[in-house]
């Protein structure tokens, strides 16, 4: 299998050695197939978000190794992780995490502000992504004025602006109804066809059932319980 990400016995412990120590992830070794859709499934508190965060270089493991495109990132300092995040990953957060008070188009352009790409070029790229996601009519709207589904699409557009190889989505359907959830699945399928690797953490059956994902990793108590390959 051509893997974009591999983990070897990774563990994440919050507040180690303290009375409130939490073992979020324990000895997880998995592989993520390049160009596939992988779903991390499990109940709340099973360690899905922590694993997603570790894979996406948003936090560092307490132990173990994480290989992203052949490079061990587990012990890299924060300044190098930022570069990897920017070049490899696009994030879709559970609560969208859009910046309120600025327009839709500005939110989507935000990841490219600290680059030397001209604003006009960024704008063109954003408009094309918005067109594909069906939100081009909302570009000057303030994000607070959008519906949940629209905000989710803006968040997806923002995750795509860097042209990342891997899209990480944390509970992307948590604030959507079933119709919008189905629409979101279609978007992910389209992105996969374009060559993106999709990793979704969810406990929503709409996403993890019905053969949508090529690989489903079931988690419980911070450990992998079962891996199903469709």
């Amino acid at each position: 299998m051509d893997s974009v990400i591999k983990t070897y016995d990774i563990a994440k412990v919050f507040n180690p050695g303290m009375p409130d120590q939490i073992k979020a992830v324990t000895d997880i070794s998995i592989e993520i197939e390049r160009g596939g859709i992988t779903v991390l499934k499990g109940p709340s508190g099973s360690g899905k978000t922590s694993l997603l965060s570790l894979i996406g270089c948003m936090s560092r493991p307490t132990s173990g190794r994480i290989i992203v495109n052949g490079k061990d990132v587990a012990k890299l300092p924060e300044r190098f992780l930022t570069g990897i995040r920017r070049s490899t990953f696009g994030f879709v957060f559970q609560h969208f995490n859009l910046i309120s008070g600025i327009s839709v188009i500005e939110n989507i352009m935000l990841p490219l502000y600290p680059s030397d790409i001209k604003l006009s070029s960024i704008r063109k790229r954003v408009e094309s992504i918005m067109e594909n996601l069906g939100i081009s009519g909302k570009k000057d709207f303030s994000v607070q004025r959008l519906s949940g589904g629209e905000q989710q699409r803006v968040a997806i557009a923002r995750s795509l602006i860097n042209e990342p190889e891997v899209i990480l989505a944390d509970e992307p359907t948590a604030h959507l109804d079933s119709k919008l959830s189905e629409d979101l699945k279609d978007i992910f399928v389209t992105l996969q066809k374009e060559g993106k690797t999709i990793i979704i953490a969810t406990h929503d059956p709409i996403i993890h059932e019905g053969g949508f994902a090529g690989r489903v990793i079931e988690m419980r108590d911070g450990m992998v319980k079962e891996v199903t390959v469709e």
Binding site: M58, E78, R79, T82, G83, R85, R86, F91, F93, N97, I99, L110, P111, Y113, P114, R158, S159, N162
Partner: peptide, 16 residues
């Protein structure tokens, strides 16, 4: 604080 976290998550460097 949340905004700084978001910016970091979407690829802004500490220096940015």
């Amino acid at each position: 604080r949340q905004e700084i976290g978001i910016l970091k998550a979407i690829g802004w460097e500490t220096s940015d």
